[in-house]
Design a protein around this nucleic acid. Structure first.
Length: 455
RNA sequence: GUGGGCGUAGCUCAGCUGGUAGAGCAUCGCGUUGUGGUCGCGAGGGCCGCGGGUUCAAGUCCCGUCGCUCACCCCA
């Protein structure tokens, strides 16, 4: 077989990169569980019509087909790989509503697939880590405050391995919609989509687009940009927005509701996670099912990477017509996060394999002695491997060194001139001492690979 | 899906107006007959992405194709 080439958009890490990724996954899971979220996993595929409820994303969905299959692709029976975890979760909630306890707090960490063109930090197969809280019929607003704060904590827990600080930008759909309608713009979706480009193409181009694409007048466009320019981490932004709305005669009931919610979120966040949550009135979010708070998260210093954690409140995503289950949740782009941690060399694993000890093999005849040492160490939860061949000790040490294994264990012997004790060598310092496999302990920091800031 | 850039050793790349494929790093061996990293010497490794064309002669020029990559779209 010719050498395979990498498939663009389907990231695969080397073993030390995977150690970093697993550490991130463990940390997220731990934080989610610390906050009482229960884990679930849903199947990788959903009926196509379910997946398409989200909007015009059909071209991004990977369809499933069998090689042997005839061309009998009945549209309403086609299966597609899920492209996020929110839609499958909504389906899961409806399917199991009778067996679930509400409000339901769940986390879900799985791969998702999108048929996009890959780029730095954008993949076709990637891992998302979601938390959502779903109520039966109603979902109190305070959950819209809690959800981003849990994520702030989860991402904050990763700062010790070298993740830059995060900034969670929040807005509220009711504020945006209330304002736009208040000034006479009804194409709320369209306006949001253009406003979303503000950072990328600048206010002048956005203004143009608002006029040409959304039928706005120059004044309306100017008002939209004025709203989008408002941001801040204290409740002063609420007054600012209201003042702007009043000056345009755009105060609506919807706007007031949204402002009250946004204000409550900012107030709570400034107390529980100071400096992390920032109101930013230009945050739009493309997805059309969000109805209240919307969130987007950037890594400070890596804003160009885009959002690493986004979400919002949705009122009708899970609805069977009779019952609705409003929810709020956020999703961390784990692969985006990990790929940046690795490519920007922000973190490193202390070694590329779990082994803390390599047990040297004196000769193939005496391999059993080395296996016995390994067994004794493993019995006390010390990760160990035995050297692959009875090569010169120099080579066996090199084997350990290349993998970052800190200790090499030399089995002793019993000869005519008496017993020679086992010895263990710290190959970083060169220190070598007598040791007993029944009692020897590595330093706690060497027991398992760790992930640490680099440089 | 649209447009630009790039495909040469495991990796990073050089290869001029066409003339017998190179370097550094990595790997392996030896120096080093039980203890690595440094150093020295040596070795292996290439359908120059693939297909076609021009030419006495193509890694080099032309066309196509595939892949990777960047931007748009969209989004974690």
């Amino acid at each position: 077989m010719a050498k395979p080439t990498p498939l663009s958009g389907f990231p695969e890490w080397l073993p030390d990169g995977r150690i970093v990724e697993q550490h991130v996954l463990d940390t997220l899971r731990h934080t989610f569980e610390l906050h009482g979220f229960a884990g679930i996993e849903t199947r990788a595929v959903e009926p196509l019509d379910q997946l398409l409820r989200k909007g015009e994303t059909s071209k991004e969905v990977y369809l499933l087909s069998r090689l042997q299959e005839e061309n009998s692709q009945i549209p309403d029976k086609q299966l597609g790989l899920h492209f996020d975890l929110t839609v499958p979760f909504a389906r899961y909630v409806l399917e199991n509503a009778g067996k679930l306890a509400f409000p339901l707090r769940r986390y879900q960490i799985q791969k998702v697939w999108r048929g996009e063109r890959p780029q730095e930090g954008r993949f076709r197969e990637f891992i998302q880590a979601d938390i959502d809280i779903v109520g039966a019929g109603e979902l109190p607003y305070h959950f819209e405050v809690e959800a981003p704060l849990v994520m702030a904590e989860a991402l904050g827990a990763l700062s010790e391995i070298g993740l830059p600080p995060v900034r969670i930008l929040v807005n509220n759909r009711r504020v945006a919609e209330g304002f736009y309608r208040g000034i006479g713009l009804d194409d709320v979706e369209g306006v949001l989509r253009q406003i979303d480009k503000l950072d990328k193409i600048g206010p002048d181009r956005v203004s143009e687009l608002l006029v040409t694409e959304c039928g706005a007048t120059e004044d309306q466009a100017k008002a939209c940009l004025a709203l989008a320019s408002i941001s801040g981490s204290d409740v002063g932004v609420i007054a600012e927005v209201r003042a702007l709305a009043e000056s345009h005669g755009a105060v609506t009931e919807l706007l007031e509701t949204g402002l009250a919610e946004l204000g409550a979120l900012i107030a709570a966040a400034s107390e529980r996670a100071p400096g992390v949550v920032v109101a930013d009135l230009k945050i739009a979010r493309g997805l059309d099912y969000y109805t209240g708070s919307v969130y987007e998260t950037v890594l400070v210093g890596h804003e160009q990477l885009g959002s690493v954690c986004s979400g919002g409140r949705y009122d009708t995503l899970a609805s069977d017509g009779k019952n609705t289950y409003p929810g709020v949740g956020l999703s961390i782009g784990v692969s985006r996060l990990v790929s940046r941690l690795l490519s920007a060399e922000l973190v490193e694993a202390t070694r590329s394999v779990p082994s803390a000890v390599l047990v040297a093999v004196t000769s193939e005849e005496e391999r059993a002695a080395s296996d016995a040492v390994a067994t004794a160490l493993r019995a006390r939860d010390i990760p160990v491997e035995v050297a692959p061949s009875a090569a010169r000790f120099g080579k066996q040490i090199k084997y350990a060194d290349r993998r970052g294994i800190p200790f090499v264990w030399f089995p002793g012997s019993v000869g005519d001139d008496g017993a020679v004790a086992d010895q263990v060598k710290d190959i970083r310092s060169g220190d070598q001492v007598d040791a007993d496999a029944a009692t020897w302990e590595p330093p706690a920091e060497d027991r398992w690979p760790r992930v640490i800031p680099k440089g």
